[in-house]
Simulated assay, not measured.
Amino acid sequence: MGDSDWTLMVDSAEEITAAYAAPPRLNECELFYVQIDERDASVTLGFETSVLPSSPPHAWTGRPYNAVEFYLKFMRVKELRITGWDSSARDAAVTLGRRDDGSVHVSVEGDRSHLDFTASASLLTRTHPFLRADEP
């Protein structure tokens, strides 16, 4: 399954699917946040995209923004592997794949960064528009 189909593997992705005619591809987003919570056996990934929604939520109306961030939380994580980690992770290729048992396999692959795991559950926890400062 391609990275454009990620919303099919994440529960509560309705906010993204309602706002976008075609959800932003994970590989075209910047991975800016990774939280591994061993107490909760979860991994949260935060993404930023400059792809703006075609039908933004009503709450976003009248707010200036040029980027959107969203967070995906993966729960009941197993088989967590990390090999190296550096700034290349921001531009990493992120893929999600459904396993036969219904779990989701997640892979984050950068030049010198690698993270992969399997999760029994996943959900979109937050979507937020913001005004990103122009880069020099």
Rank of each mutant, 00 (worst) to 15 (best):
S87N: 12
S122P: 01
V94S: 03
G84K: 12
V51S: 04
R63G: 01
R99H: 03
Y71K: 12
S42E: 09
Y71H: 09
W60S: 01
C29F: 03
R112P: 03
S122R: 02
T95F: 07
L124C: 12
Y65F: 10
L52F: 00
E15L: 14
K78V: 02
P56V: 01
L115A: 00
M75L: 13
A22I: 14
P53F: 02
D134S: 06
H105A: 15
A18I: 06
V34E: 11
V104Q: 02
Y65G: 01
R76K: 15
R99P: 02
E30N: 01
A92S: 15
V34T: 14
A93L: 12
E69C: 07
P23K: 05
V106M: 07
L31P: 05
S87E: 14
L52A: 05
K73G: 06
G2D: 15
A21L: 04
V43K: 06
R81M: 03
E14R: 04
R112E: 10
Y20K: 03
S88F: 01
L52W: 00
T7Q: 13
A93D: 09
R25V: 02
A92H: 10
L123E: 15
D111Q: 06
S42N: 13
L131R: 11
E109V: 15
E135N: 07
S55K: 12
I82A: 07
A22F: 14
W6D: 07
N66V: 03
W85N: 15
S42L: 04
V43W: 05
E14F: 11
I16W: 10
H128M: 12
P24F: 05
H58L: 08
D37P: 03
A89R: 05
D116P: 05
F130W: 14
A93V: 13
L124I: 07
R90W: 08
D37T: 08
L45W: 06
G84M: 12
S4L: 14
P24V: 03
T44A: 10
F117K: 05
L26F: 06
S103P: 00
R39D: 11
D101V: 08
V34A: 07
S55L: 01
F74K: 14
R132K: 15
L115N: 04
S122K: 08
M75V: 09
E109D: 15
L131Q: 10
E30P: 04
A133M: 12
W85R: 09
D86K: 13
T49D: 00
P24G: 04
V51P: 00
L8W: 06
R112A: 10
E48D: 10
L52V: 11
A67G: 15
R99N: 15
T95S: 15
P136I: 00
H128L: 15
P64G: 00
A21T: 13
V108H: 06
E48Y: 00
H114V: 11
D91L: 14
N66G: 00
L124D: 02
E28A: 06
M1F: 01
V51N: 00
F47N: 12
L45R: 04
A133W: 14
L131C: 03
A92V: 12
T44V: 05
V108P: 08
L8D: 11
T49Q: 02
L131Y: 06
H105D: 13
L96N: 07
